[in-house]
Structure formats: C-alpha cells, structure tokens
C-alpha cells in the first residue's frame, strides 16, 4: 500500500512509519497538519491516509475536516481516522459523507499490529473499519434502540462485529462458531431490522449504520 500519515506527535508519526515500512508498505508522506495532509494526498494520490483528528493549529478536529474533504474530493483514497478518544458525532459525520473507504480507530489499536494493518488494508480496499468503542457508542446513541431490543444478545454481538467491518469468516473466527451460524445470525438481523441482505460486506455495514443513524 502507498500511505500518507498525518500525525502531529513526532513519536507516533515515526513509530507508524517504522511499523508500516516493516510490514512492507510504502509511506509516501508524513505530515503534521490538515492542510499539509490535503496537499500530500493531492500530490501522491495514495491508497490510504492515516489521519490524527486533533492537530495544529486549533487542536480540535482539523484532521476530521481534512478527512471528510479528502473523501469528498478523492473517493479512491481510503481514510483511516485515528484518535485517542471516541466521539460519536465525529464518527457519524465521517460516515455521513462517505459510504466506503473510511475507518475510525482508537490509537490504542495500533498495539495489535496485525489487526491494525488489516483494518488499514480493508479501508484502502474501500471497506470499513470501526473501532468496537465507536460501534458500541453508535448503537448506544441510536434512537432506534427499541428496534435493536428485538435482537438476541448474540445477534447484537454479530451486528457489532459487522459494524466494525468484519467479514463473516472473521466474525465466525472471533465468536468461535461456524461461518454458517454467522450467516444465519446475519440473515436474522436483517429480517428483524427490516433490511434486505446484500452480497458485499461493507455495504451491509453501512446499511446497518445508516439505519442506526436514521
């Protein structure tokens, strides 16, 4: 993958470069603010950008603004937003502008290197990667809580993993059940939530999230 990194803490920026390079990816640019990020994306046209939400000059959400702008202007570039805390509003804004190729992870997730790189790859390929924390907050913030109440605990668990962007195979592995069982749960979820099933993984996720946000 060709990657652009936007992160203002030098120690994390260097760490990410090293980590991704070790894994055989190419970091084409590493910058420390939103404007520089947009310039770097325009110049290098990377597969994916890793973006810290809080960066100079205002240290609020310039990373998120830049990420949304990039998604709008260059749909081919995946954006993984990377933050030290979860803000449901940020996740909702990000998902509202873009139906695919987005991710929102807590910075802690980088400690599980393989999973992090996997999530980044998924986003670069046009998929979704949402932090479990983000998902649970979105579920909690949803006004359709009463509809979700119809789901069994297992189905909620599966819905959560789906929302994170996992495939059925990954969900089955995680829950230590067969893929067939997961498919059944997914079908049940769609029925209960009144959603027609679709072939593609990320579409399912976004459909679910759209439903949650409505």
């Amino acid at each position: 993958m060709r990657i652009v990194i936007a992160e203002d803490a030098a120690i994390l920026r260097d760490g990410l470069i090293q980590l991704l390079t070790d894994r055989g990816h190419e970091v084409v640019a590493a910058v420390s603010d939103g404007d520089a990020l947009r310039a770097a994306v325009a110049e290098h046209d990377p597969d994916v950008a890793v973006v810290d939400i809080r960066m100079p000059p205002s240290f609020t959400d310039e990373g998120l603004r830049a990420a949304i702008a990039i998604r709008r202007e260059r749909p081919s570039v995946g954006v993984l937003v990377f933050s030290q805390w979860v803000e449901t509003r940020y996740a909702a804004e990000l998902l509202a502008t873009s139906s695919s190729g987005v991710g929102y992870l807590l910075k802690d997730r980088v400690a599980d290197v393989s999973e992090f790189v996997e999530a980044l790859t998924r986003v670069a390929a046009g998929g979704t990667a949402l932090d479990p924390e983000v998902v649970s907050q979105l579920l909690g913030a949803s006004r359709r809580g009463d509809v979700l109440a119809a789901l069994t605990p297992r189905e909620r668990e599966v819905l959560g993993l789906m929302a994170e962007g996992r495939t059925n195979v990954a969900i089955a592995r995680q829950l230590v059940v067969t893929e067939r069982a997961v498919e059944k749960h997914v079908a049940n979820i769609f029925t209960k939530l009144d959603l027609p099933p679709s072939g593609e993984d990320h579409r399912r996720v976004l459909a679910v999230l759209r439903y949650l946000e409505s």
Binding site: L12, G15, R54
Partner: peptide, 19 residues
C-alpha cells in the same frame, strides 16, 4: 494528550511489533 498518552501509544505499538 500530547505527552504521556502519545508515549504510551508508541510504547504499546513497539511492544506489539516486538511480539
């Protein structure tokens, strides 16, 4: 946020890589 938290994330990242 800028200091300790960032350092701890970096620390976890290195240990994750090492593992």
């Amino acid at each position: 946020h800028d200091g300790t938290q960032a350092r701890l994330v970096a620390l976890a990242m290195r240990l994750g890589q090492a593992r």
